[in-house]
């Protein structure tokens, strides 16, 4: 149940970030927006949310371990997105196309990381407030 909740959380965040990125990219490229795009975005978000949720449920004892896992995770996401991107016609399977896809993945990765951090910061602030109130009693 916890894993499903975690997966759905990442699925929502990734979908939001990918849609934002697609919206920015398609401003000058209307011809690239097709009727299949929403389904493709949802499919790509689900495919990338799965390894993300798996990685997220791993305990990181050190910063070094976290960085190693983050790099492995990013590489997995790049492979998934290059494969899906080629299948959906989002990129040309050329070195430059692959390079740009890696850049897009990095942007979405940073956005999702930032969203997660902001949420966790909000939670920590609420807990700190509760701690302070508890101390006043």
């Amino acid at each position: 149940m916890k894993f499903i909740k975690c997966f759905l959380g990442f699925f929502t965040n990734i979908t939001t970030a990918v849609l934002a990125l697609v919206a920015v990219i398609s401003i000058n490229n209307y011809e690239t927006v097709t009727a299949y795009l929403p389904m493709q975005v949802l499919g790509a978000a689900a495919a990338t949310a799965l390894p993300t949720a798996l990685i997220y449920n791993t305990e990181f004892k050190t910063l070094k371990k976290f960085i190693v896992y983050a790099l492995i995770h990013y590489s997995i996401l790049c492979v998934i997105m290059i494969t899906l991107g080629s299948a959906f016609g989002w990129i040309n399977p050329s070195p430059i196309g692959i390079f740009f896809m890696c850049i897009y993945v990095a942007i979405v990765y940073a956005a999702v990381f930032a969203i997660s951090y902001i949420r966790e910061k909000k939670d920590a602030d609420k807990l700190n407030k509760a701690l302070m109130e508890r101390r006043k009693r």
Binding site: F60, F66, E120, K121, D123, A124, L127, N128, L131
Partner: peptide, 16 residues
């Protein structure tokens, strides 16, 4: 001991 916690800060990976 929760009563000894002065402050919480978020860390990577959902930890505090």
């Amino acid at each position: 001991n929760v009563s000894k916690i002065a402050r919480l800060a978020p860390m990577m990976g959902g930890r505090l």
